[in-house]
Nucleic acid binder design. Structure first.
Length: 808
DNA sequence: AGCACGCCGACT
DNA sequence: GTCGGCGTGCTC
């Protein structure tokens, strides 16, 4: 038997990123690796995670105070995943483990104080004699109560800081934090009728009309065979425990608490309505099903066009996993924009599904986690955080729209859900399904390399064709003297659509409204000679600058390609487009949707449902109008400037553009009526635009992969972004330069290139200046280990981002 | 992260 | 002469 435990304390500080040893007292049974415990730490009490057991000399160690859960919270797969995550993404083990628990901590502590073991009253008097009266009142209060919490004391005499400090210093009191466990609801309640049916019926009749909830509860109880109702049934009847209490007070019902049983799903059957699978769907399942049954980790990439029926494949795969009594995690990019898929899973699997919103309260999160942990539910759908659900028999992870950038967490730990999913699944022998109409270039490359099994789904379920796309060359428009942001073709399409009483969606990628410089005559965009990346206009200095290599260029008067003088900073904001539309179609009902008009998620939903209900004719907005919804009456999609994202100084610009165009085009003609799409662009011959217009992923990929290979961008390398932060501009640049030198020296043997330092695109946030350094490497694990050894992970003025999604 | 200990300026 | 600033260092 081991007598000591290695424990990671749950305190978010890099300097605590090492295990501490504690004595396991004999009265605390069942402390295992993975247990959450309460330990004394300094003069505080904190939550700790047991990561190892050993035999040491327990004499010198403090003892574990308590165990927080009945069973260890972390199983070996979760622990291994956390370990991997902390090494790969260079965060502390504690930070990685914290991802797996609901909320920040499993305990709530309150500062409290008590008398020390021995008190010398003479000394106390001497010390108090020269102090104000509050000192005496406070100390008396603590001594009389035996223990007093800080809020109590504050109420007594106001701000306590100085007094407490004085007492502590002179050892008149000692720390004695009080601790309460969170979410210890490991049982559920059963309500039973306490009187005979006849009596109950009679009472139900005679209850006053006003007590509707009580009547409903009684009649629901009478409707059952056993005269019992569960808490879940109560919830579905929307009867609160308050009502139950009232009836219980009258002696009509009794309640009892029963422990929650594991695997309540086992044996019950999913209600899959018999649907005929398409050939592609059943082919996909023929590949996936054996993998799920084998219990050997495999990963699949379903490359399926919009409307090819990926969701049904997901549902069938989840059903397979559930039949084997293994759990499934389904990740969606943003729960608010994907309510359709959630609804389908709910309809299919009912209470076996747990939905994780980002806005769940800590308590609700706890409940959701607990339902999974106890086996009351076996399916979790949610954003990336659902990946850390405490399920012990993981069988399947699905990542829908795997190319979405929301899968990357933009604060520490900066993990990518796809990578973590693959790792957790590998460690658990689970299957992974990645799904997308426009897979990330990296993912598709991996699939072609055989790392994932590629499953193409090229046909729509209903065999409707993809909408035809008209590409409008805005240079031609200008040549013909048309200066409006709305091209002739777009205007014609809208006229036609409005005449037919159908609806249109207009997408404007707002992020492009500034910065880059473009020739309106030939479409040429000024680029850096060394980086093949668009130059960015910097207003204060009035220069063009490359964000990758820092080179400065003066602004030419004429286009270097065609010598035209129509060289401009390009941009058309949403408002400008709205004005133009109103001028062209005065009677059309137009609604604008962007970050400015949607205050919160509700506004977003409200606008969309109003539009779906036909309250508006034209929906104009940023990227969010391109996602998720499926409105049959939308037959026209217009894209104002298909190429704005192309000109961002980002090596993923083409990929982002292509995905957005494909997604937007997919909005048209989802119902019985045929759709059409107009894409306006200054780069009609760019492969991201032509491939997007042709709905042709292959064409895009073939071009893009060549570019990536030439410049050694991912998937042919890994990137690491290090952001240097400082309060003033001089320091930040000095530190960044020093760091760059240090990196150059220490990474010479690792096949890495160092790019920068260059100012971050947002170079000052909340008065902190930011400068980036990029490392492009072929030996990621060696480099991360070195960075770790150099102490980069614990420096507070640095942010280390492995595989950054945003390199600017 | 907290909270101690510890070494230098403005006040009774 | 003290109170109190927040700079380093430690927490099993």
């Amino acid at each position: 038997m081991s007598n000591t435990a290695q424990i990671i304390v749950n305190i978010p500080a890099r300097s605590l990123d090492k295990p501490f040893s504690y004595n396991i007292p004999i009265n605390l049974p069942n402390i295992q690796v993975g247990s959450r415990v309460l330990v004394p730490f300094g003069n505080r009490k904190v939550e700790g995670f047991v990561v190892g057991l050993a035999d040491e000399n327990p004499e010198t160690l403090k003892p574990i105070l308590d165990v927080l859960d009945d069973h260890p919270w972390f199983d070996s797969n979760m622990l291994a995943t956390a370990n991997w995550l902390s090494e790969y993404y260079l965060c502390s083990l504690g930070e990685a483990m914290r991802l797996f628990i609901p909320g920040q901590s499993g305990i709530r502590t309150q500062k409290a104080y008590q008398a020390p073991a021995e008190t010398d009253m003479k000394r106390v008097e001497a010390l108090l004699s020269c102090k104000p009266e509050e000192y005496r009142t406070t100390l008396t209060y603590i001594y009389e109560r035996g223990l007093a919490t800080l809020p109590e004391l504050t109420k007594l005499t106001g701000n306590m800081g100085a007094i407490i400090k004085f007492f502590l210093q002179h050892k008149l009191i000692v720390h004695a934090d009080t601790v309460s466990k969170r979410g210890k609801a490991n049982s559920t309640i059963i309500i039973k009728l306490a009187v005979s049916r006849e009596v109950a019926e009679q009472i139900e009749q005679t209850l006053p009309k006003s007590k509707t909830a009580q009547r409903r509860l009684l009649s629901a109880l009478l409707d059952t065979d056993t005269q019992e109702l569960t808490a879940a049934q109560l919830r579905s009847l929307s009867i609160t425990l308050e009502t139950v209490k009232r009836l219980a007070a009258q002696g009509l019902v009794t309640t009892r608490s029963v422990p929650v049983f594991r695997n309540s799903y086992a044996g019950s059957h999913q209600r899959t309505t018999e649907v005929t699978l398409t050939l592609e769907q059943s082919h996909a399942l023929q590949l996936i099903t054996p993998a799920i049954h084998s219990g050997i980790h495999r990963s699949f990439l379903i490359h399926g066009v919009t409307g090819s029926g990926k969701t049904l494949v997901y549902i069938k795969a989840v059903a397979e996993a559930r039949c084997l009594d293994r759990q499934a995690i389904i990740l969606v990019p943003e729960i608010a924009l994907t309510s359709q898929i959630v609804a389908r899973f709910k309809a299919e699997f009912g209470d076996d599904v747990v939905v994780m919103h980002s806005k769940l309260s800590v308590g609700e999160r706890h409940d959701a986690w607990r339902r999974l942990q106890t086996g009351q539910a076996g399916i979790v759908i949610g954003a990336r955080s659902a990946l850390f659900a405490p399920v012990s028999h993981l069988g399947l992870i699905i990542i829908d729209e795997e190319h979405e950038f929301t899968y990357k967490q933009e604060e520490t730990p900066r993990y990518h859900a796809r990578e973590v999913a693959l790792t957790r699944a590998r460690l658990s022998g689970a299957t992974v399904i990645l799904g997308s109409a426009t897979p990330a270039v990296e993912t598709y490359y991996q699939a072609l390399q055989g790392e994932h099994i590629l499953i193409p789904m090229n046909n729509r379920v209903d065999n409707t064709p993809m909408p035809p796309v008209t590409v409008v060359d805005m240079r031609q428009e200008l040549a013909q003297g048309r200066r409006s942001v709305i091209s002739q073709s777009l205007q014609d399409m809208l006229t036609e659509t409005l005449a037919k009483k159908e609806q249109a969606v207009i997408l404007l990628n707002r992020r492009g409204y500034s910065t880059f410089v473009l020739c309106r005559e030939c479409g040429h965009v000024l680029k850096c000679r060394h980086c093949d990346i668009s130059l960015v206009y910097h207003a204060p200095a009035n220069v063009l600058r490359c964000h990758y290599c820092q080179e400065r260029h003066t602004i030419p008067d004429t286009c270097p390609k065609c010598s035209s003088r129509y060289i401009r900073y390009f941009g058309a904001g949403t408002q400008k487009v709205e004005e133009a539309l109103t001028a062209l179609f005065p009677s059309a009902r137009i609604v604008r949707m962007d970050q400015d008009t949607t205050g919160g998620k509700m506004a977003h939903d409200r606008i969309l449902s109003a539009f779906a209900a036909g309250t508006y004719d034209i929906l104009l907005g940023t990227q969010m109008v391109a996602k998720g919804h499926d409105i049959p009456n939308v037959t026209a999609v217009g894209i104002i400037s298909a190429d704005t994202a192309l000109n961002l100084p980002d090596f993923r610009a083409a990929e982002k553009t292509f995905a957005l165009l494909t997604q937007a085009a997919g909005r048209a003609g989802r119902g019985a009526k045929a759709g059409q799409v107009v894409m306006q662009t200054y780069n009609p011959e760019h492969y991201a635009v032509t491939a997007g217009a042709a709905h042709n992923y292959q064409a895009f990929y073939q071009e893009e992969i060549v570019f990536r290979r030439q410049l050694d961008y991912p998937p042919f390398s890994n990137l690491i972004k290090i952001t240097v932060q400082a309060g003033d501009e001089i320091t930040v640049h000095r530190n960044a330069n020093l760091l760059a030198i240090e990196l150059t020296q220490s990474l010479t043997k690792t096949d890495s290139a160092i790019i920068g330092p260059f100012p971050a695109s947002v170079n000052k946030i909340k008065d902190v200046f930011r400068v980036n350094i990029l490392i492009k490497t072929q030996g990621l694990s060696t480099v991360t280990r070195q960075l770790s050894a150099l102490g980069m992970a614990s420096r507070r003025d640095l942010i280390v981002d492995i595989d950054p999604v945003n390199v600017l």
